[in-house]
């Protein structure tokens, strides 16, 4: 899950070197914490959250393959 998010996030931002993903196993499946450069927040979130919504959708689909649940938090 982490490599997928890393690849997608790095492909979307201006500063791929500032992208980092932390993986935690929460009570409700896997929790992914994504950090990007401040200037890139908009690129990750997208208009009305459209991009982050699509990212969550893809992560959920990938997680379904291994019968797990996943949630994504974008950190400031």
């Amino acid at each position: 899950m982490k490599p997928l998010l890393e690849f997608l996030a790095k492909s979307l931002v201006e500063q791929p070197e500032a992208v980092s993903v932390q993986e935690e196993s929460g009570t409700d499946g896997l929790l992914l914490k994504l950090k990007v450069a401040n200037e890139d927040l908009g690129r990750i979130i997208g208009q009305k959250g459209q991009t982050v919504k699509a990212l969550r959708q893809l992560l959920t689909a990938a997680a379904a393959k291994t019968k797990t649940r996943v949630s994504l938090v974008v950190q400031e």
């Binding site: 991009t51 699509a54 893809l58 689909a61 379904a64």
Partner: peptide
Amino acid sequence: GLLIGRHGQTLASLQYILNRIMNHQ
């Protein structure tokens, strides 16, 4: 089925993200 998702949502996301990445890079 997994790639299409409910009401084609996953497919829509795949397409959206791919377009974002390609147009960005």
